[in-house]
């Protein structure tokens, strides 16, 4: 029996190329874009982070497709209504349930709303809640995780058991409960989605901050008498920024799906506002009538946006080679 003694390679924590984590596999087996990271994927300045992201997008075709899709979708939802005028508040029962035609390229709904115009308006809500919830959950989750990991010991245990407790309740259950308790405004939906979305970010950031806090420069800062709050803001957070950015991108997709489910169940933004999920709810009522234009467009819109944010997020993650778990 010959034992091969493995010597630690420089920058050794990263796995062998091709070996991947649970959900961390690149879609097209794309190689880890370059590997300009020293010391196990550590990034010290925001300039190098930016440079890294630029190089990712230059090399990863799916990431470019994702980014372009997101830009086009934003233009469609916000610039679209400026060019393509429709009424999405007043009903028009005389022109209800029309199949696609020149006047209505994607047909009309059961109360006469133009489906193409409704996609734009519904998309605004979906994108706003998606982005808002992703940012809010990342902000809160990162702060929670950084504090938990940095302080360690029983503070860490307590904070992580709180995360576990909220995590044990299925997100949709918690969301439905909160939606029935609070008044349904866009901001409230952002908060409700964020409340069920910050947990994975907190866990990931906590894990990384546990390892960052043992680094020499943190020890040095501590020895120099820098306050703990300042160490977290100046040393811990910048070092886990990559994880936070990746997680935010993936959370946008997740938030859009969560809002879609909520809206589908009839507890999303109330009329006259609409979202893609609410449009699909309407479509199910007419599924036997063959009104496919109530079912395909809104569903495709969700899938396209969710895929786009995932492509971008995965590309960023491959670049950073951080071990994330998607939910």
């Amino acid at each position: 029996m010959t034992d091969i003694v493995q010597t630690p390679t420089p920058g050794g924590v990263s796995a062998a190329p091709g070996a991947t984590t649970v959900a961390g596999a690149p879609l097209a087996g794309a190689p880890l874009a370059g590997a300009p990271l020293a010391e196990g994927g550590e990034i010290t300045s925001s300039a190098s982070l930016l440079r890294l992201f630029v190089s990712v997008f230059a090399e990863n075709r799916l990431a470019i497709v994702g980014l372009v899709t997101i830009v086009l979708m934003v233009l469609f939802c916000y610039l679209g209504p400026v060019i393509y005028h429709t009424t999405q508040v007043h009903t028009a029962l005389l022109t209800a349930n029309l199949p696609p035609s020149n006047a209505h390229p994607l047909g009309t709904t059961s109360v006469g709303y133009d489906v193409l115009g409704r996609l734009m308006v519904g998309g605004q809500v979906s994108l706003e809640v998606g982005l808002g919830a992703a940012l809010l959950s990342s902000l809160f989750g990162a702060a929670w995780g950084a504090v938990s990991g940095f302080f360690g010991r029983w503070t860490d245990s307590l904070m992580m058991r709180i995360v576990d407790s909220i995590y044990a309740i299925p997100p949709l259950l918690l969301m439905l409960l909160m939606v029935t308790i609070f008044s349904p405004t866009t901001f409230m939906f952002i908060v409700v989605v964020a409340i069920v979305s910050w947990l994975p970010t907190a866990r990931l950031v906590r894990g990384e901050s546990l390892s960052v806090r043992t680094r020499e420069y943190v020890e040095a800062a501590r020895g120099a008498g820098v306050t703990r709050g300042k160490i977290i803001v100046r040393h811990i957070i910048p070092n886990v920024m990559g994880t936070i950015v990746v997680q935010t991108t993936l959370q946008v997709a997740n938030a859009i799906l969560l809002l879609a489910a909520l809206s589908y169940l009839g507890l999303g933004p109330p009329p006259p506002a609409t979202s893609w999920g609410a449009m699909l709810n309407n479509g199910l009522n007419f599924i036997y009538d063959g009104y496919w234009w109530l079912i395909y467009p809104a569903g495709f819109a969700i899938v396209v946006v969710v895929l786009a944010f995932n492509f971008v997020g995965d590309a960023l993650r491959d670049a950073l080679d951080v071990r994330l778990q998607r939910h």
């Binding site: 997709a253 799906l257 879609a260 489910a261 589908y264 999920g277 699909l280 479509g283 199910l284 599924i287 079912i295 569903g299 969700i302 899938v303 969710v306 895929l307 995932n310």
Partner: peptide, 11 residues
């Protein structure tokens, strides 16, 4: 993964 499960059900 990207497909809302209720939409998959509808399809």
């Amino acid at each position: 993964y990207a497909m809302p499960n209720f939409w998959a059900g509808m399809l």
